[in-house]
Structures are given as C-alpha cells and as structure tokens.
Design a protein around this nucleic acid. Structure first.
Lengths: 258, 258
DNA sequence: CGCCGCCTTGACCACCATCAAGTGGAGTGG
DNA sequence: CCACTCCACTTGATGGTGGTCAAGGCGGCG
C-alpha cells in the first residue's frame, strides 16, 4: 500500500475516458460545448498507466498538478502512528484525486490505487487559469467537491451509527449507485476488485468480521460477490435493510437502480 | 433538537462579531481591505439571536440565504429512520452554516444550535455576485470549505479507528485548538456548553460511556470539565495519548497550544 | 511445483451498549 | 422560603457486537 510510483508513462489521447467526468459534471452544472472541450484538452496527452497499490500522492506533498482517475479504483486514506488505517473515500473513474491541494496548498492524507488505474494529469496553473476565466467550470468543480463532502458525511454516519451488516450493505449500495451513474454497470453486476481487508479499513471493521457479514448477505440471497464481481440481487431489499437513501449522492432524480 | 425557529430578529450592526471569520479566512487566502469590507457589509444588518436547540436549516430546504455563526455553538447532524443521530461537525463562531447549499441546491442534512447563538445572514444572490466579481473572496470561501472537509475526514478516522478514550481526547484537542485560533480562549479554559449526550452523538459512543471516559480523563489530571467550561491541564500529554496532530485543521504554522 | 495473498472458519474475550436507579443543580411556582 | 420538576450527570450490573488470534483452504502467478 505504499510502494512509491514506478510506472509507465505514455502520451495517449484521452478519447472517451473523459466521459465519466463529463457526465457527472453535467448533473451539477451547466457546461457548454466549449467548457467540455476545454476540460478534455486540459487532461489530454498526459495519461499514466499505474499498477495496483501504488501511492499517487502522499501527505505533505505540494504538487503542481492535478490528477484524475480515468479507469480503475483508488482510495483516500490515512495511517495512524499505531499502524491502523482508515480509508476515507473510494475514487472511481471520473473522480479527481487532489483538486483540493490546489487550493489548500498541502495534502493532509494519501491517495493510492487499489487496482491498476489509468490516471490523467493536468498542470495546476492551467487548471487555475481555467477556473479564473470560465466561471461555469469553477462552479462545476466546486460542485463536484461538495458532492464528495456529502458522501464523506454519510460515511461518518455509517461508521458512527450503523451496525456491521448495515454498514457493509450501505457501502455496496453506494458503490453500485455510483458505478451505475458513471456508466460502468455491466450485465452481470460490477467489477468489484476491493479486498475484504480494504472494505474493513473503510468501514472501521476487521477483515474477519467483514467476511462473516458477506457470508450472511450471500446466504440470504441479497448479493453475489465472487471473482472480483459484485451483483445486487435484490437492490430494494438491500437498500431498505441498510437504510440507504441515495439523496446524499446528488445524482439527480433520474438515477434509480430498477 | 427539532423545534422550529421562533426567535427574535433585530437590526444590529455586526461590529467585531465578524472577526472570527476574517481572522480565519486570512490564514487561507490573501484578502485586501476592500474584500474584508465587502464581506462585513454582506452580513451586516441582519443578525438574529437564536435560542439553544433550534434548527437553523433542515434537510430538503432550498433557502435563498446563507447563514454565519457569530457566537455560540451549533452542529450539523443527520437522524436515521431508527432514531439514531450522528453529529457531523461542530460549528463555532466564524463558521458558515450552509455555504454549500448555494452550490449544491439542496440541504442533505440539518443544522441546529447547541446553545444560544447570534447568527448573521446574507442573501444568496448577493453572495453569488461577490463570488463572481471578487475572485479572492471566491477562493477564500472555497478554501474554508476545504478545511471543513479536512476536519470531516479526521472525524471519520477518529470514529473508525480510535478507541473511546482517544476519541474523546481527540475531540477535546480539536475544539481547544479551533477555539484558540478563533480567539475564544480565556484564562480558565474555554466555554464548553456541549452535553455528554451530544459528545456521544458526535463520536459514535453512548452518553454513559462518554461519562466514564471523562471521569478517567479527570482522574488522571488531563482535563478539568465542569460548569460548562473545559480546560486542558496537560495539552501535550493529552494530544500525545490521543494521537492528535493539528495539521488537518490547516491553522498555519503559528498555531500551537503552548 | 511452490509460494503468496486472500478468503474462510472457529474459539475466546474485551470494549462498549443498554437498562436501571440515583444524585444534584437550576429554574419555577406555591 | 420551600416543594417540585426537569435535565444533565453519575454509577452499577449485565450482555452482545465485533476484535483478536490462530489455523486451514484455495486460487493465481512466477
């Protein structure tokens, strides 16, 4: 979880890989064709293919660039002096890694890949200029940031108030809804490459207990989870027992699973 | 915690009550005299005195105004269908209540006072104009928002990974550092009007257990907590046992307690 | 083929929730 | 001035949720 980056770097065109970002921003702000072109151009041409379990940026860094996940899963996390680790967000395609560091000045946590990822990067100054000159883009980025904060609040509720089985079910629902919204749903469920260890670190539970809960959810026919794929077999039942209410995801009214 | 507001409303001048906000924003962004005057003017003239345990804004609201805490304590919270309550932030003087709703469009949680509060409000459209025309102010507000998010991340770490006594100690440290930074420190500690019930709701612990932990902290001479006042008797020892590292508060390098 | 990471299952027990009863101070009304 | 109420704090007893430790199975990859 903390090898330092030693990875391929290539000049590919970004192509459709920017789509998850654009479809998401469209929900929250009115972008015109030029705005979208400017964003696409911003991240075009500097794409890196990064292996799993590599740090993208670490606490204390003051980078002059901003990174965007194009494919794969990543996470924000902190490690305490006693070695305990808390994951504070899962980053899916279309999520920014470190927009905040451009404003805050310094990273106060780490970001690492969970799976192999394609990551685009843009220079901080180019982004700053876009923010200064295109107010719609500035607003859209702020909006995306606020949605992330909203998700974070719900995670705190989850860890603070819900028993283990509800926590796990809730996270499964959230990821399913988000992946669907990003257009990453597939006939037989979703790619789900997160280990039970990493689920535990996100939910404040031990890997052993995650396993027992997953067994239960399987036994009651609510989910199928095997071979790195997750399918919600009874999304409504699962959402209800988890007290999952997708409002906090700010996906808009049209986003429903079934 | 959910009476609806029925409170005095008066036309006072804001005077020095705006200072906690300005001193905080100065840490994160360069504001000139005109910027500060514009912010002061924005909130001037519409100040409400609100009693304790009154909702300032509720989930689902779409208000056309933004509220700022001038004095007193408030909190963000959510209530689950089963009645459990999670506090997601304590709001101190100088904190915005609902800046995010101006961008997100809809509140996804509630805000209520914990004690009697003085609250200033500004119209959303006036704020929007300020953001559009004064880029330094826009940046400062975004910065304040990101600091809040950083605090939220640390709360998740706290609830997810730390045992009860560290959680409590950590929260005490955070509030002491923040109150000191806001200029609200007093010779004999701080005003600390938060009930043990509300501490529990913030930390994911029962009020009974909070009480036992507080007893321990008192017995070991680390804190004094009585009569609505809190004093950290051995700040360094407390911070160390709590694994408290104030970096996440983004107070700047000068902010140390002793 | 052999190693390594992840998943799985069992045994044990600690931390913390819940329930319950009692104390004490502040405010109110007689 | 005193009874009364209300709320926050306090303390004890009991039990459950979930952590820790340990060992074994299984699949992927070098």
């Amino acid at each position: 979880m903390s090898k330092r980056e030693a990875t391929g770097r290539s000049r590919e065109t970004i192509g459709n890989a920017i789509l998850p970002l654009l479809t998401r921003l469209r929900r929250g702000a009115a972008l015109d064709i030029e705005d979208e072109a400017a964003l696409t151009e911003l991240f075009n041409g500097s794409i890196r293919q990064i292996k799993g379990h590599i740090d993208l940026i670490s606490q204390g860094d003051r980078p002059g660039r901003v990174q965007l996940i194009l494919s794969g899963f990543a996470c924000r996390y902190k490690i305490l002096p006693n070695g305990r680790r808390q994951i504070m967000a899962y980053l899916l395609p279309g999520d920014f890694c470190d927009l905040n560091v451009a404003i805050l000045g310094q990273m106060d946590h780490n970001i690492s890949t969970l799976t192999p990822c394609a990551v685009a990067q843009a220079s901080g100054s180019a982004l700053e200029e876009l923010i200064a000159t295109r107010s719609r883009i500035a607003r859209a980025l702020w909006w995306a940031n606020l949605v992330e904060e909203s998700v974070l609040r719900e995670w705190l509720v989850n860890v603070g108030q819900r028993p283990a089985h509800q926590r796990v079910a809730n996270l499964f629902c959230e990821l399913a809804w988000r992946l669907r919204a990003a257009g990453l749903e597939q006939p037989e469920g979703f790619d789900f490459p997160i280990t039970q260890q990493d689920l535990g670190h996100a939910l404040g539970l031990s890997a052993v207990h995650i396993n027992r809960v997953v067994q239960d959810l399987r036994a009651t026919g609510l989910i199928r989870l095997q071979g790195g794929r997750l399918a919600l077999l009874k999304p409504d039942t699962l959402a209800e027992m988890a007290m999952f209410d997708p409002v906090y995801l700010h996906l808009g009214t049209e986003a429903h699973l079934r």
